[in-house]
Simulated scan of single mutants.
Amino acid sequence: MNSKINSKIDLKIQNGYTLETGSLIDESVNTFKKTFLMSGVAMILLIIVTLIIYGTVFALIYGFSDLTSTMTEFQASQSTAIGLISTLLIATVTSAFSAPITAGFIHVNHLAKNNQEVGINVFFDFYKSKFFKDIFLSYLIIGLTSGLLSSGLTLINLEFLTYFTQFFVAIITVFTLPLIIYGEQNYENAITKSVKLFFKQPVLIFVALLLAVIGVLIGIIGFCIGIIFTIPFYYSMIYAIYNQAIGFEEKSLIDEIGQEEF
């Protein structure tokens, strides 16, 4: 862990930081415009990878029997504790294995901002980086936390609160991946420091991410196909928030990614 970067993050947690909604929108839009085509292609690949992982985990839990009977069994189990646990495990493992690609979606904004080359390989580079373990474990913990809370609400017939809970967990951990890949934090520190950083500017972060979600939903206008190319805007906003809140040294170690980092 780089002590200089770590000290800078701790200082932000102690003293706070400033965010400006207008500049967040400007920065996220500018980087998004440079990356949306490549990110759209990567999003299609992410969907394919996620379906493969989800399908594999699903089959391992429920077996490789007839698809119709398996789906019937799966739907029938959703009202039981065992069914909810199975669904939680499938979703969490899928999310954890897909997390390195999510990190790639954030990182392409850093490359674009610094006028560096962006290729489709960038979205998969974190699978072979030294950050993979912490990325995987962080999303495993976040996924389990969100899933357990949602499952508990479902069991006590408060299912309408599950979406709020999932969104809340997502926004308080919004700094997690950037803290790992840029701040060189381990998964435990990344999660705990993300929560602390979020509560320094909760309203502005909520508003910024809400605007990003609205921007993503604009893709529905394009007969839903366009949403594949607008989803990456959410990650552009996450990068902009981290950049404005924490920032980078003039010569950040992450600029070496793709070289000795992997």
Rank of each mutant, 00 (worst) to 15 (best):
K8C: 12
K8H: 15
K12T: 03
N15R: 13
N15T: 15
E20M: 13
S23N: 10
S28A: 14
N30F: 03
T31R: 02
F36P: 04
S39L: 12
F58I: 12
F58H: 04
F64P: 03
T70R: 06
T72V: 15
S77E: 07
L84P: 05
L84M: 15
L88I: 12
I90W: 04
A91K: 14
A103M: 02
G104A: 09
I106A: 08
V108S: 00
K113S: 12
E117D: 13
I120C: 09
F123L: 07
F123Q: 03
F124D: 06
K128L: 12
F131Q: 06
I135G: 03
F136D: 04
F136M: 07
L137C: 06
S138R: 05
L140F: 06
I141G: 02
I142D: 04
L149A: 13
S150F: 02
N157E: 15
V169Q: 05
V169Y: 01
T173A: 14
V174P: 01
V174K: 03
Q185E: 13
N189V: 07
K193Y: 10
K200D: 05
Q201S: 09
I205W: 00
I205T: 04
L209H: 04
L211A: 12
V216A: 10
C224Q: 11
F229A: 10
F233G: 01
Y234V: 07
M237F: 06
I241Y: 01
N243S: 07
D255A: 10
Q259I: 14
E260H: 11
E261R: 03
